[in-house]
């Protein structure tokens, strides 16, 4: 579904990415992880089309990223940035409605989708509130609802094509309950065929939902593999320069990193 073939990125003579190859099959969840400045966001931006790869290429559905028209891609790929600056007093509901910009599904259908998307991120009570007055976590939830609304048919599993969702530190501003809500949403939409790529800092949170982890450091891809393969004390020490123990979750059996 989504592939990067030896992608490199150099901006004003500074190399940001070097020879990154990852393969995200349909309905998989990939977590990009690594220390600050490792190039996680840069990679996400290359996939999103904000930066053009200096070397290599990004493939979407077997077709080079550059051969897609932006208006076509927007119908099945949504991107949630790290933070957003919206200075105008849209209501939360209107912000979510902007997610339907690429589609022409009609006001009635869109209104249903907006209500559904807000409910999904536990933000129905914010619908009429002014976006600029929301807290950081509330804003991020409304933005999440916006990107879900953009690929709603794919998230609901009633679309002939497959969706892609790119998330840049989606849980950074969330409280514990909403972090778990995010994991649940990601698992649910992945099960319905949406390919998810997300930048995350919390190893344990990523371990709960990722099919594939990518460890990055200094613009290089250090390791790619399943959660069990990558969450080892040796790799964590190498990538994050932190001494950590890896234990097994007593109930779920997933690896847990303890520092």
């Amino acid at each position: 579904m989504l592939k990067t073939n030896s992608v490199g990125l150099t901006i004003s003579a500074v190399p940001l990415l070097n020879n990154i190859s990852i393969d995200c099959p349909r309905g998989s969840v990939t977590a990009l992880m690594g220390p600050n400045g490792a190039g996680k966001t840069s990679l996400l931006k290359v996939i999103a089309g904000e930066h053009k790869a200096s070397q290599g290429r990004v493939e979407i559905n077997g077709q080079s990223r550059e051969d897609w028209k932006q208006s076509e891609i927007a119908k099945f790929m949504a991107v949630l940035p790290q933070s957003s600056t919206l200075e105008f007093a849209f209501t939360a509901q209107e912000v979510v409605a902007l997610g339907r910009t690429p589609h022409a599904t009609g006001l009635l259908r869109d209104a249903e989708i907006i209500i559904g998307a807000l409910a999904k991120v536990d933000a129905s009570y914010l619908a009429q509130r002014s976006f600029v007055q929301l807290s950081g976590g509330e804003k991020q939830r409304v933005q999440l609802a916006r990107v879900l609304a953009q690929i709603w048919e794919h998230c609901e599993g009633d679309s002939a094509t497959d969706g892609i969702l790119l998330l840049d530190e989606p849980s950074a501003a969330f409280d514990l309950a909403h972090q778990l809500m995010l994991i649940e949403i990601v698992q649910q939409i992945a099960a319905r065929g949406v390919t998810v790529v997300m930048v995350m800092h919390d190893l344990n949170l990523a371990a709960k939902c990722a099919d594939q982890m990518v460890f990055m450091n200094c613009g290089q891809c250090t390791a790619v593999g399943t959660v069990k393969e990558l969450l080892t004390p040796e790799l964590i020490a190498k990538v994050f320069s932190v001494d950590a123990e890896v234990i097994t979750h007593p109930l779920q059996g997933t690896p847990m990193v303890v520092v």
């Binding site: 932006q70 891609i73 927007a74 119908k75 600056t85 200075e87 912000v95 902007l98 910009t101």
Partner: peptide
Amino acid sequence: TGALNAMLLGESEARHLGIN
């Protein structure tokens, strides 16, 4: 007008919403 509304979110957000 639709594109202008999307632009208020930010340039890259508007791009991701399919706007040139």
